[in-house]
Computed example of a mutant assay.
Amino acid sequence: MKLRWKIAQAAEIRWWQGYLNKKDKSEYLTWKKDYWKQFLKDCQLTLPPQATCLDIGCGPAGIFTILPYQEVDAIDPLLDSYAEKLPHFVPSDYPNVTFQNLPLEKVQLNKTYDYVFCLNAINHVADLEQCFDNLFSLTKAGGTLVVSIDAHNYRIFKHLFRAIPGDILHPHQFDLEEYQTMVTTRGGHIQATIHKDKAFFFDYYVLVIKKK
């Protein structure tokens, strides 16, 4: 699994370079911020000023981009590569955000957060069980954890992709029910399951979770 993760990470930065290569920085960030604002509306979340927030697997333009009044930490194992290779990501553009170049498995913070976001990231980690444990340990009791997932639609392809690297960017292959069970067995209450996008192999969902 570690080898699959390393291959996925190498493919991820190449994907970002190709995707952003011809996109104007200002136009792209405006579009992305509008996307995140609508995302919060879909989740029925309003984050108060001074709320503590963690953006795990933040990428070069994560939800941290629309949280200027909150206390934000943003963590991603490719942040150094983004800063070096993507002009769209300039950490100094976000003075209220503390960035750390770390995989989720190695995050050891002596704090918990009102809101923890793990968006477009949990499918990319090396150790899925450890990462879910960390997400819950980083969320305050009574706090909100928001996780987005690509969930398999068909059992046959789920098992096929587990056996062979048919989906190089995603080391983990699970269906919606399996992801929901990973949440509830850790004491999370799923407040909403939002069906964001439909495709053949995977549908894209967002789980809004309250930590008990």
Rank of each mutant, 00 (worst) to 15 (best):
A51S: 00
C53T: 08
Q50N: 14
A8Y: 12
W36A: 06
T46L: 12
R4S: 09
L3K: 15
G18M: 08
D55G: 09
P48A: 04
N21C: 14
W5I: 08
I66S: 00
L45D: 05
Q50P: 08
T52I: 03
S26D: 14
Y28V: 05
V72L: 07
L54E: 01
K23H: 00
Q17E: 12
L67W: 06
D24H: 07
I63E: 11
Q9Y: 09
K25G: 00
Q44Y: 02
K25D: 04
E71R: 15
C43R: 09
G59V: 00
D34G: 13
W15E: 14
K41Y: 01
G62P: 12
F64S: 10
L67V: 01
Q50A: 14
C43V: 01
I13S: 01
L3G: 12
T46A: 01
V72K: 03
Y35P: 11
R4E: 07
T65Q: 03
K6W: 13
P48S: 00
K22Q: 13
R14N: 14
P49H: 11
P48N: 03
G59T: 05
E12T: 15
E12L: 08
K22F: 13
P49K: 12
P48I: 09
I7G: 09
P60R: 00
I13T: 00
F39G: 07
L29Q: 01
L45R: 02
L45A: 00
L54C: 10
I56N: 03
L40Y: 08
R14P: 07
K33R: 11
E27G: 02
Q9D: 03
F64R: 01
T52L: 11
